[in-house]
Amino acid sequence: MMGKPEGLKLIDENGYRLDGRKKYELRKIKMEVGVLKSADGSAYVEWGKNKIMAAVYGPREIHPKHLQKPDRAILRVRYNMAPFSVEERKKPGPDRRSVEISKVIRGALEPAVILELFPRTSIDIFIEVLQADAGTRVAGITAASLALADAGIPMKDLVAACAAGKIDGEIALDLNKEEDNYGEADVPVAIMPIKNDITLLQMDGYLTKEEFLEAVKLAIKGAKAVYQKQREALREKYLKIVEEVGE
């Protein structure tokens, strides 16, 4: 965490945050499914100022071949930030942060996908961060999960994600960039809501056990709200198809 400017208050005396939200309020979220023509499945998520595109290719033949598994598909995830997505231009290509995030996102999605149905193939997920404003990994997971569903890949559940954190000594939902920079902790969480299975959990910061568990619980609540929006976005896509066919 960076040094907080003197006198900057992240929560004012009336309990409002810098962007006008209350402590337990999500940023505005918009989702759309089936936004790319070439991909087998795709989704676009706007989450506050985050703009995230996700695409799924597969199940398809693996290159290189030695990676193939005789009893199941492999899941590959690439999280990538566009050079223009952040204040100071990001050098193109994977840095250490992107490599770690790609790995934990794979771990978050893997439990949901029924890989045993497609031996010797790969399912490739590409997450492109077009604009970043804190919380890109949870928005990316949310988009990727929609793209998987859009590709028709059998899943046990959608994966929904959200973060909670600590700002000005209080646990709050869904930190934006300023809050992430000057806050005390960030706790991203992904869940499979049907069975309340946690598939991603990280913490970056300094919290007591009580604060940590409170943040996890709050993030789960946030993820459940995100889950409802995911279902609506998918329903909307199919309603559109029904309308088109009807005509």
């Binding site: 790995k103 934990v104 771990g107 893997e110 439990p111 706790v187 499979m192 309340n196 299975d197 946690i198 598939t199 991603l200 959990l201 990280q202 913490m203 970056d204 940590f212 568990l213 996890v216 619980k217 789960i220």
Partner: peptide, 12 residues
């Protein structure tokens, strides 16, 4: 620091 890693899932 907290890190859930690889696949699998955990209950609260």
């Amino acid at each position: 620091a907290v890190q859930k890693s690889e696949g699998g899932s955990f209950k609260l």
